[in-house]
Design a protein around this nucleic acid. Structure first.
Lengths: 343, 343
DNA sequence: ATGAAAGCGCTAACAT
DNA sequence: ATGTTAGCGCTTTCAT
C-alpha cells in the first residue's frame, strides 16, 4: 500500500495533523519540525492522496472544459488545440487539473456537466459559447458555480464572466489596413449572420469604413457563404459589377481562398487591383498561392485568460464577473502588399 | 448541503448500504425496495458524491491524456482534436472522465503524471508516442499502471498496449493507387527520418514499389524536408533529372503543396505528367489549387480504440497488452485523376 | 506549537 | 434480503 500521512507522521515523530499543516502551510509550525517533516516526506517518497484531500475539504482542484463532439468542424484551425493548451497551462500553474467533457445528455440520465458539478469532481467550468445553453448557465448561476464562457453573446451581460476575441476591433483593423494600402471600395464576406462573432466583425468593418471617410455599401456585404466555391461565385459576381470592389475582408480562410480564386478567374491582379484580408490566420491563408493577409489572435492566451478568471472565481467567490476581449493583430502578407497610395 | 446517501436511506426507510447496493447493482435486492430506492433518489434529486466514491473504493473513474504543450505544431491537422473527441466519447460511454495534462516537470517537483497516478486521481493514462519517455513507461509498468500509447516504436514490443495508424499499409496503398493510375517512376518525400512513422511509410512505399514490379530508386527518395519551400526545391531538382519521376508520395500536406508548385514551375502537368499523393488528408490537400489525393485515417476512431483498450486494462487487469493498427484509405482527388494507362 | 478526535460520503466485510 | 460497523486518507476543530 501507498505511504500515507500517518506513515510520515510516525516516522517524523509527530501527529498526522501536524503533517497536514505542513503540507498545507497552515497554522504555526516550528521551523525545526517543519524541516524534519519535509525531509521525512522526501525520504518516504510521500505523495498525498488527492482524492482523500478533495473528499476531506470538498474541493477537487480541477475544472472542466466542455467540448462539442458533434460539431468537430468548429474546432478546426487549431483554435481548439491552442486554447486547450492555454487553459491547461494556467490550470497547471495554479495546481488545478483539467477535465474534458462533452455535454450530450444520454436519455434519462443526468447531464455530464451536472454530474461533474454535483459529483464534486470539479470546482469550475469553461464553456464555449456554442455549448452555453441558457438553461445550463442558469443552473450554474443558481448554484453559484464558478464558470467562464469562451465567446460571448452580448456585451451588456455582466452577470457572467467571458473571454473572447475582439471581433469588432478585428473588423475595423482589417479595413484600416486596407485603407492604408490605398484600397477604397471594400467588400465584406461572411457566413452565418446569426453568429455574434460575425455580427461583431461586420460592425467593426462598418465602423472602419466610416472612419476611413467612406460609405458602407450594402451591395458589397455578402453573408450566408460557406466554403471556397460559394465565396468564389460571390466575388466573381462582385467583380462584374459596375462599381466593383478593390478589396475584400473575409470572415474565414476558405472565403478568402475563394476570393483569391475569383480574382484569378476574373483576371484581376492581387494585390495590385484587389486586396484580400481574412480572419483567423490559419495555415490555409499562409500557404495560399498568394499568401493572404490575415487577422491573428492569440488563442493560447485566450485559454489562459479564461482559466485564470475561472480560478480567481473559484478561489475568491466574492470576485465580480469579468469580461475580457483580446485584440487581433494583422499579419501582413502578399495579398495586400502593394505600395501605399496614401500621402 | 447536498443530499447524501443517508438522506436517501432515511427517506426510503432502509440503510445506507442498501442504497449503495442499488446504486452499484451489487448484491441481491428485492425488486420492491430497489424500485422504492430509485424513486426516492429521483425525488430527492440525489447525485452521488463521486469523490467520496472514489475515495472509498480507490478508483477515480477517470483517466488522463498527456499532451505536449511545447510542440503545439505536432497537433496541427486536427489530429489532436479528433483523437481527443474519440477518447472522450469512449470514456464517457464507459462512465469515465477524461483529464488533460502536460508533462512538464517543474523544477524539483514531482511530474504531473506521477502526481495524478500516485494522487489516485486517475486509473489509467493515454500517452502520445512523442511523450513516451522510456523512464516514464518503465515507472508505469513497475506500478502495473494501465496505459496505452498513441503511436508505437517497434512492433516487436508487446509488453505495452498501443494504437497507431498503419503507416506501412498507407505507404504501400499510396503507391498502389499511383500504379493503378499508370504512374511508373515514383518518388518519396518526407521529413525527419528518425521518426518511426516516416520509417514505416518508407517501408510501405518500398514494398509497394517492389510489389508493382519496379525498382526502389534511392535517388527518388528525399528526406529531411520541412515545409513547402523545401519540398518545392527538392521536386524541382527531381524534375530536372534525366530519369525524372512521374509521381511523388509526400509525407505530409505541406510537402505535397510544394511538389504541386514545383510541377507548376517546371511546366509539368498535374495529373497528366505528374501525380501527387500525400498523407494526412488535411484541408490543405483538399483545398489546394489542384486538389491533392491523400491518405486518410480515422483519428476519432484511433482515440476511441485507445480509450477502449485502456478501459479494458483498467477493468480487467489480467488482460494481455494489445496493439492495434488502423488502416488508411485513399481519398482520390484531381492530383492523380488521369485515365489509367493499365490494361 | 502540537496532539486527539471527529467527520467528510461512500463501500464492503461481516452479521443476521 | 437487509442492517451494522469499520474504514478509506485527509482536514479541522478543539484542547492543551
Amino acid at each position: 500500500m501507498a505511504v500515507t500521512i500517518k506513515d510520515v507522521a510516525q516516522a517524523a515523530g509527530v501527529s498526522a495533523s501536524t503533517v497536514s499543516r505542513v503540507l498545507n502551510n497552515k497554522g504555526v509550525i516550528s521551523e525545526e519540525t517543519r524541516k524534519r517533516i519535509w525531509d521525512t516526506m522526501k525520504e518516504l517518497e510521500y505523495v498525498p492522496n488527492d482524492v482523500a484531500r478533495s473528499f476531506a475539504n470538498g474541493s477537487a482542484r480541477a475544472f472542466a472544459l466542455v467540448i462539442d463532439v458533434v460539431d468537430v468542424r468548429a474546432y478546426a484551425n487549431n483554435f481548439f488545440n491552442n486554447t486547450v493548451f492555454g487553459i491547461e497551462t494556467a490550470a497547471h500553474e495554479n495546481g488545478y487539473n483539467l477535465m474534458i467533457t462533452n455535454e450530450k445528455s444520454v436519455e434519462d440520465e443526468i447531464s455530464p456537466v451536472q454530474k461533474l458539478v454535483l459529483g464534486k469532481k470539479i470546482d469550475g467550468i469553461v464553456i464555449p459559447i456554442s455549448m452555453a445553453d441558457e438553461s445550463l448557465l442558469e443552473k450554474l448561476n443558481d448554484l453559484g458555480f464558478p464558470s467562464v464562457i469562451l465567446g460571448h453573446l452580448d456585451e451588456g451581460r455582466t452577470e457572467t464572466s467571458w473571454v473572447d476575441i475582439n471581433n469588432t476591433q478585428g473588423g475595423a483593423l482589417a479595413v484600416r489596413h486596407l485603407i492604408k494600402k490605398g484600397y477604397r471600395n471594400i467588400a465584406f464576406l461572411y457566413g452565418n449572420d446569426k453568429e455574434q462573432f460575425n455580427q461583431d466583425r461586420l460592425t467593426g468593418f462598418s465602423r472602419g469604413v466610416s472612419a476611413g471617410g467612406m460609405d458602407v455599401k450594402q451591395e458589397l456585404i455578402c453573408h450566408g457563404l460557406s466554403g471556397v466555391e460559394d465565396s468564389r461565385e460571390c466575388v466573381l459576381g462582385l467583380l462584374r459589377q459596375e462599381d466593383r470592389p478593390d478589396a475584400v475582408v473575409c470572415g474565414d480562410d476558405r472565403l478568402a481562398l475563394g476570393a483569391l480564386r475569383a480574382a484569378k478567374a476574373a483576371g484581376v491582379a492581387v494585390p495590385r487591383d484587389f486586396g484580400i484580408v481574412s480572419f483567423d490566420n490559419t495555415p490555409l491563408t499562409e500557404l495560399a498561392d498568394i499568401p493572404i493577409t490575415s487577422l491573428d489572435v492569440d488563442t493560447f492566451e485566450l485559454g489562459r485568460q479564461a482559466a485564470e478568471i475561472l480560478i480567481q472565481q473559484i478561489e475568491e467567490p466574492e470576485t465580480s464577473f469579468r469580461q475580457v476581449l483580446l485584440s487581433t493583430k494583422i499579419i501582413g502578407r502578399a495579398s495586400t502588399e502593394r505600395e501605399s497610395e496614401e500621402e
